[in-house]
Amino acid sequence: MGTHARDLTRTPLQMAALIMGIVFLVVGILGFIPGVTTNYGSMAFAGHNSNAHLLGLFQVSVLHNIVHLLFGLAGLALARSWNGARNFLIWGGVIYLLLWIYGLVVGHDSPANFVPLNNADNWLHLLLGIVMVGLGVLLSRRTSQSRRTFPV
């Protein structure tokens, strides 16, 4: 039907973006499941007053879960191309690094903590930012170097 085998193969960069997208989707879904999310009944749409915690650790709200779902969908869509996967990993990682800084600067009880974020979220955002940028940079270098070295 016109689909070439080459169209069905993904580079390691695209696989990393796809996996990250799936992880974000799963986290977004889990945030809406009572039991997996403790204090589910106290989940607010947004703001620091949401007392719901994913896995009893990460403070979440409806908005926070929706952001994870949208990030996951973006990862799935952008993983379809090499450039999209690279952009998702690098710029998505930058967004998470900025969220980490935001979480450190904004007080946890502040109205500006609208996502909401707690200490566990902050450190997870740092880790996600480093991993995503690292994967985006390292895997795109390897692929672009192999393209130069071994032309098809």
Rank of each mutant, 00 (worst) to 15 (best):
Q14Y: 02
I66W: 11
G136Y: 09
L104T: 02
I19P: 04
V27I: 11
R147K: 12
G28E: 04
R141M: 05
L124K: 14
L18R: 13
T143G: 01
I66G: 03
L18E: 03
V105M: 00
D109M: 13
L55H: 04
L30H: 04
P116M: 07
P34Q: 13
P34S: 13
L135M: 13
P151C: 01
G72D: 11
I95D: 08
G92T: 14
F24D: 02
F32D: 09
V62Q: 04
L55F: 15
G28F: 06
L76R: 09
F114L: 06
H48L: 00
V60Q: 10
V60L: 01
F45Q: 05
I22H: 03
R86M: 13
G93I: 07
S110Q: 11
L99E: 10
F150A: 11
G28P: 08
R80V: 07
A85H: 10
V27G: 02
Q145I: 14
F114H: 04
G134W: 04
V105D: 00
I66F: 09
L30A: 13
S146R: 15
L8I: 09
L98S: 11
A79M: 09
N87G: 08
S146C: 11
G35D: 07
V115S: 05
G134E: 12
A112E: 08
V133F: 01
N49P: 04
F58D: 00
V131T: 14
L97K: 05
L127A: 15
N122L: 02
Y102D: 00
I130G: 10
A120Q: 12
V62F: 13
